[in-house]
Design a protein around this nucleic acid. Sequence first.
DNA 1: CGATAACATGTTATCCGTAACAAGGCATGG
DNA 2: CCATGCCTTGTTACGGATAACATGTTATCG
Lengths: 321, 321
Amino acid sequence: MTVSRVINRSGAISRETRERVEAAIAELGYVPNTLARSLRMKATQTLALVVSDITNPFFTTLARGVQDAARAEGFNVIFCNTDESETEQAEQLVALVQKRVDGVLLVPAASSAEPVAYLKRHKIPVVVLDRRVEDCLVDSVRCDSELGAYQLTRLLLDLGHRRIAMLSGPATVSTAVDRVAGYRRALTEAGLEVVAGLIFHGAYSPIGGRQMAQAALACTRRPTAFFAANNFIAIGAYQQLREAGLRVPEDVSMATFDEMPLTTLIEPFFTVVAQPAYEMGQRAMQLLLARLTNTAVGECQEVILPFDLIVRRSTGPVPAA
Amino acid sequence: MTVSRVINRSGAISRETRERVEAAIAELGYVPNTLARSLRMKATQTLALVVSDITNPFFTTLARGVQDAARAEGFNVIFCNTDESETEQAEQLVALVQKRVDGVLLVPAASSAEPVAYLKRHKIPVVVLDRRVEDCLVDSVRCDSELGAYQLTRLLLDLGHRRIAMLSGPATVSTAVDRVAGYRRALTEAGLEVVAGLIFHGAYSPIGGRQMAQAALACTRRPTAFFAANNFIAIGAYQQLREAGLRVPEDVSMATFDEMPLTTLIEPFFTVVAQPAYEMGQRAMQLLLARLTNTAVGECQEVILPFDLIVRRSTGPVPAA
DNA sequence: CGATAACATGTTATCCGTAACAAGGCATGG
DNA sequence: CCATGCCTTGTTACGGATAACATGTTATCG
């Protein structure tokens, strides 16, 4: 007990005993056991960030924002990958409940509110990141995907493109859906017909991008522009286009969501909707921490952060037929 | 106790009771408490990976290898950033001991063996990754940096370069030192004088790269080739060169350690020594797991993995003066 | 049929830190 | 001088899961 008091600077301790305890700690190399402490305190000072793939620089950057904000408040963060699978996500969440994390930042693998409900049932505060979940009251931080897609599509339309292939993510993921919605709105507003055959759904991965690009190239009239719903899709699609002998932007234009940090540094190429990944992570963590400490934060919050539309070399006018 | 037996499938349980317990678990939404379990068992099923910066794709890829290997055996992994600081590293290690992790994979921030000794004192198995630590018996997995640097330098020499700037990492980090050593060996072997003024040490970051490139450009006779000790340095240096109006490889050549995944996919550019990051993570984790389970693994192991020297567009012959 | 083993379930103690309470020592003040 | 209260230290109980042991039940076998 006395040792506990010395370590936590709680209660009153005479200077002499404190020094004696500190000396003993140093001599024995004693390190307190967090497990026992957390067990007793019913708090682990640990939070979790669940994303689909920590390998994606968007999530890596976001993770860094999360971690920096957490560390500032003395919290630790566990990172989990779901690989965009609802099953894996469910397993991860169970594991997190078992660990009794104090809170979770979730980039949901699908729009279902069930995972959020599961955590709430276990009294674990959640903040949903980057994506929406079906109507359910929960704190969340994201960008406006619909608007971003709308603006990016407008940009392509203004360049004269009329056949724009939309290479989107899994239809279960809100960002994929919203980006398609923004794309549709821009086309409709411009008085153009939305061609269902030009809208593709696939994995948020280079492979997904390749497959969708291949399918798009197989259309009777080749699209003049490609809109990738994320960086990985863009990469895969770009490779596919190159292999098909097409040059970007001379033959086809490409635009995408999400920056590709290193790429940008070497040679800025892709026209993108750049989402503030680091800030998203930071903000989400701050929201979560507020829930954890300041109990009276009231209703749930929905933070929509601004994005940047950055025009680079990958987009250009429609080539003369 | 009966519940414990059901959950862990240990001991004998009648079918009827098991079903009753399982029903109750489902109904109550009971989730066992890992903290209590770990406390009692003196094992957390948790390992840690300590790297300098999880934002660097080399470490991200490595982390993925670590995690995949760990998950396969039912272990969880905590990721820690040290930002290349020995102080932060020390803090992280204390935190890991407090958490009673079962083992640690360490990319040491410096060559000192103290951190390794610290973990050993607390009976926590360690595997050192990517870098060497001063003579101390410890399992480790890495590539041969000296050899990689030697070969890369040879390549530049064979292209006719004689003034090659070496932009290395912090002098406290073994990879930075070894890469300089390989560079020196290649020059010496070629009968060339090693010019101290062409060897730079800086942070393994874009900023570090910029600064070193700037210093190198300030030399009375400009180097015709730049050897960056890692991907981040290469990025920074490349930007600096471009801003100085130099083209790569027409005006100067550049070569570096470590791939830049997305970059490569879009447009392979840098000539690199590509280390098998994913495999390094995997192997290190396997080694660690072997230590944890199979107690009699004997002496410590030192795994040196092969690298690939990939020649791309960033290197070329010396421009005509 | 009684002894022994095999199976099924319950009890107790333990891991380690901390909340809550208890107790001894000392000073202040009426 | 004793009551009150602060300061300091110690004691007990608890968080939740599990090892080790104990108990009760049923099957097996000479």
